[in-house]
């Protein structure tokens, strides 16, 4: 009887520890899940590009996302970029529409690590993606409220980054900071999410900033308006819709 009580106690303790300890992979999966939680998102945002001299350029963008793999981004301003649109589909399929050329162009993978329209985000960064599918995670540390992960590109996944370091909140797994390291393991870019608040049942960061530390250039995105789960139709995420300049 005593033996059984000890066994049950041990099992309860182990179960309790397991329940409180997430593996690095779990944390990463949860981080992906919380960012891509809404079934769909329609976001109007302002992008401010700031160079090392403090000079600013502003872009207005409309972004549509469905699930965690399809995203359409359309530039509304400035005038010389109005209508430039980018479509990211599952299986790494990406299209770009440049109104001046009247053509929808499929993007080859060589351009995916290139900067997107002068911002500090690469085409790859702008795609709707899941870190857990592309990176292997290791839990480096835990602070009072954050998990600190190291992400290494999975074998066969071609990235411009040698590794990433991610800080994710413990309460909701939302990634608040990501450091991107170049192939020489030098810190290259820094991504930060701010003003993370509940919008309905979802967590949303209303401000995010990517800083290129080498160029001393940053791109800050501030959400003007966000609509979640409004039932975006599949045909928004098509080449047909891509060239509809609005």
């Amino acid at each position: 009887m005593k033996k059984m009580a000890i066994t049950i106690t041990m099992l309860l303790i182990i179960g309790s520890i397991y329940a409180q300890t997430h593996s690095a992979e779990d944390i990463l999966i949860n981080a992906d899940a919380v960012v891509n939680a809404p079934q769909d998102q329609e976001i109007s945002l302002k992008m401010t590009l700031t160079d090392k001299g403090g000079n600013e350029k502003v872009r207005e963008i409309k972004m549509y996302q469905k699930g965690d793999e399809t995203r359409l981004i359309r530039f509304l301003s400035p005038a010389d970029q109005k209508g430039v649109s980018f479509l990211s589909l599952p299986d790494d399929v990406q299209y770009l529409y440049l109104p001046a050329f009247h053509k929808v162009r499929r993007i080859a993978s060589h351009i995916k690590n290139d900067n997107f329209a002068g911002t500090d985000f690469s085409y790859d960064d702008m795609s709707a993606s899941k870190y857990a599918e592309e990176y292997d995670a290791t839990l480096l540390d835990k602070t009072d409220d954050l998990y600190i992960l190291e992400l290494i590109p999975k074998q066969g996944v071609e990235k411009n980054y040698s590794k990433l370091k991610m800080w994710a909140r413990q309460d909701n797994f939302y990634p608040v900071k990501v450091e991107f390291y170049d192939k020489n393991s030098t810190l290259w870019k820094l991504f930060e999410s701010r003003n993370i608040k509940k919008n309905g049942k979802y967590w949303v960061a209303s401000e995010a900033e990517m800083t290129d530390l080498k160029k001393q250039h940053s791109t800050k995105m501030i959400i003007d308006k966000v609509e979640l789960d409004k039932g975006l139709a599949d045909n928004i995420f098509t080449k047909r819709n891509l060239k509809r300049v609005k």
Binding site: R106, I107, A108, S109, H110
Partner: peptide, 10 residues
């Protein structure tokens, strides 16, 4: 046609 071969757009 348009696509890519390895990393090259073709």
């Amino acid at each position: 046609f348009a696509g890519s071969f390895l990393d090259v757009g073709i």
